[in-house]
Design a protein around this nucleic acid. Structure first.
Lengths: 125, 125
DNA sequence: CATCTATGTTGACATACGTCGAACCAAGGG
DNA sequence: CCCTTGGTTCGACGTATGTCAACATAGATG
């Protein structure tokens, strides 16, 4: 630890796998395209190691963490790197190198989008 | 159709893969056990075909549908059956045979649990 | 009982996935 | 410069996964 004082000021635009996904799962049957898109996100979180890594980043101070702080999940370091890459490809995380370390941070819009997917629409229960 | 008027009073306990899962992903790093449990649910929805089937059931009238109503997802009938089984094993769906047809319905508590997982905790960002 | 329809099960197969060790880039410090 | 520490990429390997065709089972119906 060391530099928790980095200001998240210059976010230059993450990517394009985030928000415009789909309606709530309970609203209407998903189309093939919607399913493809949404499944990609669920799949990314469908592995215990990835879920732990994601949770570690998400719960870390400022929603970001360097690899060295979260790589204690019981698998080799290359495997950690591999999973972080997967999460990045799924649009759930972004990474940035600052000096010696690489920092990963969550893409908040994606969490929100997934939350909406699971939420009941109007008044179901 | 029929029983939208069922009061959620005496829910006799569905199974054991539902509610007591985990805190929000952003609250603290998941333990290995929590990750294992939660990942199983995400994984179940991590396939496009399963997601379409689940969405079809969830959005169907009364939260239940017979296989014949949802099996038009572009794969063979055995494959549909296979995926429905997976969803059932993951605790996301339950099935019941009524006469000739088999009806699948969503397990609401699971949706709620997953929603909570994705929700931001107290005031995170 | 014969049979037809609706689902589930089995076996096989190609592909995807998770994992590791080794080799490889990046940044600092003698 | 070289060497050490932090991370990623590569190649390989075993296992899991999605898919289908063929077969099996459950009710309904004649």
């Amino acid at each position: 630890m060391s530099n928790t004082n980095v200001l998240p000021l210059i976010e230059p635009e993450p990517a394009a796998a985030a928000a415009p996904c789909c309606p709530p799962l309970t609203e209407r049957p998903f189309s093939a395209d919607e399913a493809e898109t949404a499944a990609r996100m669920f799949k990314a979180l469908g592995d215990p190691v990835r879920l732990r890594l994601f949770s570690a980043v998400a719960s870390h101070e400022g929603g970001e963490a360097c690899v060295c702080d979260i790589s204690d999940v019981g698998v080799s370091q290359p495997t950690v790197s591999h999973h972080l890459k997967k999460l990045k490809e799924a649009g759930l995380l972004t990474s940035e190198r600052r000096g010696t370390w690489v920092y990963y941070r969550v893409e908040p819009s994606v969490l929100a989008a997934m939350g909406k997917l699971l939420a009941f629409g109007p008044a179901a229960a």
